[in-house]
Design a protein around this nucleic acid. Sequence first.
DNA 1: TCGCCTCCATTGCAAATGCAACATACTTAG
DNA 2: CTAAGTATGTTGCATTTGCAATGGAGGCGA
Lengths: 224, 224
Amino acid sequence: MHSFFETIKKCPLFADIQDSDLESLLRCLAATRHTYSRDAFVFHADDAVESVGVVLAGSVHILQEDFWGNRTILAHGGEGDLFGEAFSCAGAERLPVSVMAVEPAEILLINYRKIITTCPNSCGFHVTLIRNMLHILARKNMMLTQKLEVLSMRTTRDKLLAYLSARAVAEQSNRIVIPFSRQELADYLCVDRSALSRELGKMQREGLLRYDKSRFELMQQSMQ
Amino acid sequence: MHSFFETIKKCPLFADIQDSDLESLLRCLAATRHTYSRDAFVFHADDAVESVGVVLAGSVHILQEDFWGNRTILAHGGEGDLFGEAFSCAGAERLPVSVMAVEPAEILLINYRKIITTCPNSCGFHVTLIRNMLHILARKNMMLTQKLEVLSMRTTRDKLLAYLSARAVAEQSNRIVIPFSRQELADYLCVDRSALSRELGKMQREGLLRYDKSRFELMQQSMQ
DNA sequence: TCGCCTCCATTGCAAATGCAACATACTTAG
DNA sequence: CTAAGTATGTTGCATTTGCAATGGAGGCGA
C-alpha cells in the first residue's frame, strides 16, 4: 500500500499539479476521505450525483443492475482510479450504477461543483483540474469509440481485422504486438476464444495475416 | 437554411450563452468561418489537432481509413453539430479521422487552446464554454458506454434484452416505446433485420416480452 | 525428471446468424 | 379507391458461432 499522496498523484485528475500544492488544493476542494468495509456501497444506484471518487486503497466494482435485478460488473477500480466522473460531468440526476467496495477500501470523495467552479480565492489549480477532467473524458471517449467500431462488426473475422487494422494504423506498421493473451483478446472482441482461434487459423491459411503468440503481421495485398 | 446565429445557438457548445454575448465571445475565441465545396476536406487524417469545428451550413462526414485504405463513414454532421472535440480535448497529436464536406458547407473553426484558456480579459463565457464541453463529452461518454454494454452481448437475444432492459430501467417502467424502426433497431444492435424479427417473435412466443410496432412490454417473471 | 498448471489450438455438434427471397400489412400520393 | 412504395414478418439455406471436450506445448516448483 502506498502513501496517501503517492496514490493521489497516480490519479490522472491530479496530473500536472505540484506536490506542494496538493494539500491546499484538496482543502480547497473540500475533499473527504471515507473508509468502507467489504461489500459496502460507496455510491448506490438512484443516488443523486454529487461527487466523483478516487480509490485511495483497496478496490471497488462498478455495478449495474438490469430490469430483472441481475447485477453485472461493468468495471473494476483499483488504487488511483477515478470513478463517477462521467455522470457528474454529464449532469445526470440519478446514478445509473452502483459502486461497491470489493475489499476494505478508502475513498476520496470530491464534490463535483467544487471542481468546476473556480473558487473565490481564484487558485490556479482549478484550471489544471478542469483541463485534466476534459482530458480524461476525451481519452475515454476515444477508447470507447474505437472499441465500438470493432464491436459493430458482425463477424469474428471482421472484428479481428478492425482491431488489428486500427492498431496497425496507430503504430504505422503492419507488424504489431498486441497487449492481450488469446483469452483477453477474445474478451475484448466479445467472442468465444476457440472461435477466435479457429478464425485466426483460417485467416492465416488464406494469407490475410501471419501470427505467432501476440505478434501479428497484416498482409498488404489482402483487399478484403 | 437558418441564419448564422440561429445555427450557432443550436450547438450545445454554446448553450447558456446569452445571445447578446455571442458575438463578442466568437471574437474572443478568434473563431473563423470557412466554406468548403463538395468533397473538400475540412480536416485530414494525420493533420495536427488544433481546432474543433461547428457545421454552420451543409453537412460533413467523419471518415476513417483502415490499414488497407478502405474508407468508413463513422458519423454524419449536420447543421449545428460539433466535431473534433474529443481529439482536441484528449490532446491527440494527429487526427485519426478525416472530415469531409458531403455538400457545399460552411464551417466555424475554433482553436481549442482559446476555448480552454481563460482569456486575459477574463470574460465569463469561458467558464460556461468549458462546462458545456465537459457536459458534451460526458454525455457522449454515457451514450457510448451504454451502447458498448449492448454490443458486448454475444447473441441477438441478449443484445435485445440488454437494450430493452436499459430503456426500461431508465423509464422506470416495463412498458417502453423505442425511437427506432425495426431496421434502425437492427442497425443499432448491429444485427441482421430478419434475424432480429425472428428472435423477437421467438421471445414473444416464449413469454419474455410482448410488442407491437415500437411499443414493447417486458415481462417481470422471465428471469433469463 | 516428474507432475502440475496455464495457455492455446483443434474438433464435433447444435444453435444462432446473415443473406436472399418472398409474403403481408400499412402509408401515401394521385 | 387504386397503385406504388415502405416497413415488417417469414422462411430456406449455407455459414458462423458458442460450447464442451481433448490434446499438446511450455513454464515452474519439488
